[in-house]
C-alpha cells in the first residue's frame, strides 16, 4: 500500500512539475521550454524574462488554490463520511465569493489580504448555515447535500445580483466571479500562501483522526478522538482552505470533488494517503484547467470556473450513477 502511495506521489509530483513549466510556457505568447528554463535563472531574452516573470505568480496561485479547493473537499468528505461533500456543492465557495463581491462593492478596490479575510468570513457563515439547516430534523447525507446546493444557489445568486447592480463593480469582478487566474503580481500569492499553509498543517494533524471518524463517531470516540474537536478543526481547515482559494480564483467548483475522488481510487482508504495525494492532484487539476482556459478559445481566455465545470460535471453525473443511495 505504501509502495503504491509512493508511486502515486512520484507520478503526481512529476505531472505537477510538467504542468507548472507548461503554464509558464503556454499563453498568448508561447515560449519554447528551453527559454522558460533559461528565464527562470534569469538569462533569457528580456521579453522572455518578462513574460515568465508575469506568469510565475499565476502559476503559484493556481497551485495554492488547487491545494486549497482539493484539500477542503477531502476534509469535508472524510468528516461527513459523504463522498459528495465538496466546498463547491456545499455552498462554501459561493459564500466566500459573495463576501468578496460585497467587500469590493463596499470598500472599492480591496487589498488581496482583505479579500482573503472576507472570503474566509463568507465561507464560515455559509458553512455554518448549511450545517444548521441540515441538522434541523436530523442531519442526513442527503439533507446536507441538498442544503448545500440550495445555499450555493442563494449565495451565488446574491453575488450576481450585487455585481449586476453596479456597472463599475460588474466590470471589476466579472472575470473573477466566473473563476479566473488573471494575476501578474505576487500580492495575491503572498496573501493566500500563509492561509493555505495553515490549512495544510491542520489537515496533517487531522489525517489520523479522520481515519478513526470513518469508523463511526462512537468507535472514533472510543479510540480517543474527540468528535466535536475534530469536527471544529475540520470546519476551520475547510473555511481557511476554501476561503483562501476562492479569494484567489473566484468560485471554482469540482476540484474539491474530483481530486479526492481520484486520490481515493488510487490509494484506497487511508485518509493520510488520500490527503497527501489530493494536495498534489488539486494543483494538477487546476493547472490543467487553467492551461485549457488559455488555449481553448481562438482568442482571449475562457473563464477557469467554466472550464472546470465542463470537465467536472460529467464526472459528477457518473458518480451519481455509481452510488445509488447517498
Amino acid at each position: 500500500m505504501t509502495a503504491r502511495l509512493g508511486l502515486a506521489v512520484a507520478l503526481a509530483s512529476s505531472m505537477l512539475c510538467i504542468l507548472a513549466l507548461a503554464s509558464l510556457a503556454i499563453g498568448a505568447k508561447s515560449l519554447p521550454l528551453g527559454e522558460v528554463l533559461a528565464a527562470l535563472t534569469g538569462d533569457a531574452s528580456d521579453v522572455a524574462n518578462e513574460i515568465v516573470a508575469m506568469r510565475v505568480p499565476r502559476m503559484l496561485l493556481a497551485i495554492l488554490a488547487g491545494i486549497g479547493f482539493a484539500l477542503a473537499g477531502a476534509v469535508m468528505q472524510a468528516v461527513t463520511r459523504n463522498v459528495l461533500a465538496d466546498p463547491g456543492i456545499m455552498g462554501v465557495n459561493a459564500g466566500a465569493s459573495l463576501a468578496v463581491v460585497l467587500c469590493v462593492a463596499l470598500t472599492g478596490m480591496a487589498q488581496p489580504m482583505t479579500l482573503v479575510w472576507a472570503a474566509m468570513g463568507g465561507a464560515l457563515v455559509t458553512g455554518a448555515l448549511v450545517q444548521i439547516f441540515s441538522s434541523l430534523g436530523g442531519a442526513t447525507a442527503l439533507r446536507l447535500v441538498l442544503c448545500g446546493v440550495a445555499m450555493s444557489a442563494i449565495a451565488g445568486g446574491a453575488g450576481w445580483a450585487v455585481t449586476l447592480s453596479d456597472p463599475d463593480l460588474f466590470r471589476r469582478v466579472l472575470v473573477w466571479g466566473a473563476g479566473s487566474l488573471i494575476v501578474t503580481d505576487f500580492e495575491p500569492v503572498r496573501a493566500v500562501a500563509p492561509f493555505v499553509l495553515a490549512g495544510v498543517l491542520l489537515t496533517l494533524v487531522l489525517g489520523p483522526r479522520l481515519n478513526a471518524i470513518a469508523l463511526g463517531n462512537d468507535l472514533a470516540r472510543s479510540l480517543g478522538v474527540g468528535i466535536a474537536g475534530t469536527q471544529m478543526a475540520a470546519a476551520a481547515s475547510v473555511v481557511v482552505l476554501a476561503g483562501a482559494a476562492t479569494s484567489a480564483t473566484g468560485p471554482v467548483g469540482f476540484v474539491g470533488l474530483l481530486a479526492p475522488l481520484a486520490a481515493r481510487a488510487v490509494v484506497g482508504v487511508d485518509q493520510r494517503a488520500i490527503l497527501a495525494l489530493t494536495a498534489l492532484l488539486g494543483p494538477v487539476l487546476l493547472l490543467s484547467a487553467d492551461l485549457l482556459a488559455r488555449v481553448v478559445l481562438p482568442q482571449g481566455e475562457a473563464p477557469l470556473g467554466i472550464v472546470m465545470a465542463f470537465a467536472g460535471a460529467p464526472v459528477l453525473i457518473a458518480l451519481a450513477y455509481r452510488i445509488g443511495d447517498l
Binding site: A212, A214, L215, L219, S222, G268
Partner: peptide, 25 residues
Amino acid sequence: AMLPQFPLAPDGIRVAELVMRGRFP
C-alpha cells in the same frame, strides 16, 4: 476500548487496515 453495536467499515477497506486503526490511541 468500546465496540459499538453498529460500527462503520469504510468502503474498500481491507481487514488488516481496519484492525490497524485500533492502534490510534
